[in-house]
Design a protein around this nucleic acid. Structure first.
Lengths: 241, 241
DNA sequence: TACAATTTGTGCGTATGTATA
DNA sequence: ATATACATACGCACAAATTGT
């Protein structure tokens, strides 16, 4: 007979880790800023520096903070070059990595589709901001992208800013204080339709790579649902295991 | 002007980590067996237990060893359920994970193709063992797989064992002492050809997901090159970022 | 340039808790 | 109950990196 899983005991450094994570999530230290030093935090919580170190190391391991020897510990921004490539897995056939340039096609506020509501864990009636754009790599249209975010959580995104920046996650973080920390992707092979033909210049029926991504914050709340259709003649999806 | 990258200084626990990794690679402790205790290893290397702990924790983080409280530290087998799903990213549309059943179509020793030689870092003349098989999920053919390994490194694989086990990495480890530790995959969308039609039952020209994987050992030596063509009507490729 | 102050990284030692055999 | 092994927690000393004086 299995017992209900009640954490009878939680190591001290784990408790500290959760406490610090909560303060980060609450916005006490915005992304990019430095948090207090190990010694001062250890004093705050009345634990040894060693224990507090373990908590910070664990947070660093989870990409919540970044440690700089001699400087201090900063809250991760999730919009640095390194962090962006965490979510961008398309590379050239020669192995080159470069970020795409985006051009917005449509941008509107409307009711969520069933698929969007399910992915974002919203009610059927709720509204989303939907954006459709094409993204170019090496001056060639490479992706046709549809994305949706909660219209209440990202209020006004259908209007401002204009134009939209290339890297939306940066915008989410700075303008709406929603940092994308994790994501899960499902990949499919699909046949190109009329829109793909129009915007990507591929023949109708030709194979495309479809990437459906749900982007989540530190506490695994879904922030964005994104469907990218990608041509794989000049690029491919790269994954290191 | 940049200096040549000479590691002027290596932390002690990193040196210990490398030393232990070498002993694991050399087969001193085969996969699944337990290595000496922290205290005895600390004595061997004349370092503190704390330092040796950091080395072992780092190895555990790299999936080289597994730590069991109260029992000891074991060399990872890379063939446990958890470890197999590290490399198997296909899931059902409902999110279910199950391992496929394999049926071998061809199995032969022959000269490497240019693509295989390049992926396995072999000379053009060298021979490989090539295996083609189909893999079924839910009693439905889902993957058509071509794979190649060095015929010298995996001597006799074209003959024995018969039949081949479902999980080849298990065989590589136990019969040939080559453990697959990492891998890199490149994904493409391709059109089904006559073989795909014959073995997967999909229409010619319909979109398939092609996964090209290079499997490597602990020291990043390429062990296997594998190309899987997968139908994504009933399954998809799942990736957590 | 030199030096000091601050902060994280490394290394050591010890004591105690928890899991396993 | 005992012994062993890993996990947690504390404390200290020094190294390395950064910043400002």
């Amino acid at each position: 007979m299995n017992q209900a899983v009640i954490p009878k005991y939680q190591p001290l450094y784990q408790q500290i880790k959760e406490a610090l994570l909560s303060r980060v999530m609450a916005g006490e230290w915005p992304p990019g800023t430095f948090i207090p030093s190990e010694s001062s935090l250890a004093e705050q919580y009345s634990v040894s520096v060693g224990t507090l170190r373990k908590a910070l190391d664990a947070l660093a391991n989870d990409n919540v903070v970044i440690r700089y020897q001699g400087k201090g510990t900063a809250v991760a921004t999730h919009d640095s070059d390194r962090s962006l490539f965490q979510f961008f897995h398309l590379i050239g056939l020669d192995g080159s990595r470069c970020l795409p340039i985006s051009r917005v096609l449509t941008r509107e506020r409307r009711a969520a589709t069933r698929e969007e509501a399910s992915a974002l864990e919203l009610e059927q009636e709720e509204e989303v901001v939907h954006i459709r754009r094409i993204r170019e790599l090496d001056n060639r249209p490479a992706l046709l992208e549809d994305l949706a975010v909660s219209a209440t959580r990202f209020a006004g995104l259908e209007q401002e800013p204009t134009p939209l920046p290339n890297t939306l996650y940066h915008l989410y973080q700075h303008r709406f204080s929603h940092s994308v920390a994790h994501a899960e992707e499902r990949l499919f092979a699909v046949a190109a339709d009329a829109d793909d033909n129009k915007y990507l210049g591929v023949e109708i029926g030709s194979p495309l790579l479809e990437i459906r991504r749900i982007a989540k914050d530190l506490k695994d709340t879904p922030l964005e649902y994104r469907v990218s259709r990608c041509e794989t003649e000049h690029h491919c999806y790269f994954n290191k295991l």
